[in-house]
Amino acid sequence: MVKRLTKAHQKMNASRDQFDKAMGQHAEVLARLEELETLRSREKEAAKTQREALEAQLLVEREAHEVEKAAREMLEAELEEVKARATLEAERLKLEGKEEFLKSPEFDTLLGKKAGGFFKNGFFGCVAQWRANGYPEEEHPASFLNVQQAIAEMPDEEEVQEEEEDDDEEEGGDGSDATPPSSPLLSFPFCCTPHFLSY
């Protein structure tokens, strides 16, 4: 019986040691769990703080983007306005330049060259029509069929203007009722007869 009691006592001591050991492990696990909970709560707090900081940064960036967008739209509007003003100014300068060119001697020179070219082509065309329609040059020589002579005999524009002014002064009028002067290029007797203009 003592043996049994000793064995039972030993078992009980072994069980108590195991229980104490298990309780120690349980306490360690609880301490570790508390540490993990504390660590988790710190990490959660840090994550929350970081998220709030990121949201605040995102908000600032959005506001900056909106400000930049508004500034860009304002600059684009100003650019369009400047473009419109530049276009109007260019048109104005173009018109002024055109008016100045039309009053310049260069324009008169160019106009004279063009008019001379048209006159020459028209003159030769009319002469060709006269000859094609059987105008007898041998029987009725016409001095105006010579282009150099015709050009030489053309009155100078300044002389025509002076003659018109003299006529106006002699008539006593201001020239407002007078018919406009005919162009010297159209004052020749050829090319006015429909017979010679028909092909």
Results as ranks from 00 to 15, higher is better:
29 V>I: 14
145 L>Q: 05
195 H>I: 15
104 S>T: 00
100 E>D: 11
68 E>R: 09
39 L>E: 15
123 F>D: 02
29 V>L: 12
78 E>H: 02
107 F>C: 10
159 E>Y: 02
36 L>H: 06
52 E>M: 06
173 G>W: 05
88 L>A: 08
192 C>E: 11
76 E>F: 03
30 L>P: 00
65 H>A: 11
155 P>W: 03
164 E>Y: 08
68 E>K: 13
161 Q>P: 00
78 E>K: 02
156 D>T: 13
50 Q>T: 07
173 G>N: 05
4 R>Y: 02
47 A>T: 12
123 F>W: 02
14 A>Q: 04
91 E>F: 01
20 D>M: 13
165 E>V: 03
156 D>V: 09
31 A>P: 00
174 D>R: 01
166 D>F: 09
165 E>L: 13
113 K>D: 06
100 E>V: 14
150 A>T: 14
21 K>W: 03
188 F>K: 15
31 A>W: 01
136 P>W: 00
156 D>G: 03
115 A>D: 08
72 R>M: 14
133 N>C: 08
144 F>N: 09
15 S>N: 10
196 F>L: 06
26 H>G: 14
35 E>T: 10
131 R>S: 11
136 P>R: 09
131 R>M: 08
13 N>I: 14
193 T>G: 07
54 L>D: 09
4 R>A: 13
71 A>D: 07
123 F>G: 04
67 V>I: 09
24 G>K: 15
119 F>W: 07
180 P>T: 09
84 A>W: 01
34 E>F: 06
66 E>M: 04
63 E>L: 12
19 F>I: 15
59 L>W: 01
42 R>F: 01
195 H>G: 10
56 A>K: 03
158 E>W: 05
111 L>G: 11
178 A>R: 15
50 Q>W: 01
48 K>I: 15
59 L>S: 14
195 H>S: 13
84 A>F: 00
63 E>S: 07
157 E>D: 09
159 E>T: 11
147 V>C: 08
54 L>H: 12
39 L>N: 14
175 G>V: 02
102 L>W: 00
3 K>T: 15
165 E>K: 13
49 T>D: 12
199 Y>E: 15
114 K>W: 07
62 R>K: 12
189 P>W: 06
21 K>D: 06
48 K>R: 08
53 A>P: 00
5 L>F: 04
84 A>G: 07
97 G>E: 01
96 E>M: 06
114 K>G: 01
64 A>P: 02
176 S>H: 05
168 D>S: 11
37 E>I: 12
28 E>P: 04
60 V>F: 00
110 L>Q: 10
88 L>Q: 10
186 L>V: 04
41 S>E: 14
79 L>V: 08
17 D>I: 10
18 Q>D: 12
192 C>W: 02
